[in-house]
């Protein structure tokens, strides 16, 4: 199997339970899904549907109770803390609802951070971080502190930080939840561009507007996937961009 054919995410009957005995909660009750390279998937669901648990497991922030999860062909079960840190660092870029930039630290330093933890040398790190900032259109804000940036700009810095390591998966958790409509459009356009450039995106959201931009939408309820709709093929442009091209 070549790299191109290997699914980025391969979940086989993954379950996650919290608590014991009478108080046991099945946050995930058996999920089997694959996400191919280059796909743009939106995961939707009401709160308590298990989508956050799914995101934690996909993001290697939590481990499944049972089932198998291969991330880019690597089995992430039975990994210790340090190994999971390394896997997250190499394979996943995170974008969070509340941006989660390190305060009092410049945009550039924030973007450099994953590279620093990966052991990349300073000069190389700086070059790649500036590249990533250029791609999100914030090269001129490199020296600004998070507190000096708007919400949309902060989220774009977070996206730059997520893509700077060239991860196989970009994982976004409610990326527009804290943004106004203008900033939301900015970030979603950026996602479209990244998808068009061949990146694999998984976006957890409860907003239809966000889901509409994805190539494929998963709906979750009570810990299982209840709907899996593909809008456009994995290899096509995301719906909005495709529409623009056709028009």
């Amino acid at each position: 199997m070549t790299t191109a054919q290997r699914p980025v995410i391969d979940l086989t009957d993954v379950t996650k339970t919290y608590g014991e005995g009478d108080t046991v909660v099945h946050a995930l009750a058996g999920v089997t899904r694959r996400v191919e390279r280059g796909d743009y998937v939106a995961v939707m669901g009401a709160s308590g549907s298990g989508k956050s648990t799914l995101m934690n497991i996909i993001g290697c922030l939590d481990s499944p109770t049972a089932g198998r999860y291969l991330l880019d062909g690597v089995d992430v079960r039975h990994r210790d803390d340090a190994q999971l840190s390394r896997i997250r660092n190499r394979k996943i870029g995170f974008v969070f609802q509340s941006f989660n930039l390190i305060p009092r630290t410049s945009a550039l330093s924030n973007v450099e951070l994953p590279l620093a933890y990966a052991g990349v040398r300073a000069a190389e790190r700086r070059r790649r971080a500036l590249d990533a900032l250029t791609r999100v259109g914030l090269r001129d804000r490199a020296g600004h502190l998070p507190s000096q940036l708007s919400g949309g700009q902060q989220q774009r810095v977070a996206v730059a930080r997520a893509i700077v390591t060239e991860p196989v998966l970009l994982l976004a958790d409610e990326p527009t939840g804290a943004l106004d409509s203008h900033s939301t459009a900015e970030v979603l356009d950026l996602f479209d561009e990244l998808s068009a450039a061949g990146r694999t995106l998984v976006v957890i959201t409860h907003e239809d507007e966000v889901a509409a931009r994805a190539k494929r939408v998963l709906r979750m309820r009570d810990g299982v996937v209840v709907e899996d709709v593909r809008t456009v093929a994995v290899t096509d442009l995301p719906p909005d961009m495709g529409a623009l091209v056709e028009a």
């Binding site: 803390d81 340090a82 840190s85 390394r86 997250r88 989660n100 390190i102």
Partner: peptide, 16 residues
């Protein structure tokens, strides 16, 4: 705490 969470999410190990 949050900063620590961010750092760990993006790849900081325990040692770091």
């Amino acid at each position: 705490t949050r900063e620590i969470g961010i750092r760990k999410a993006i790849g900081a190990g325990k040692g770091d």
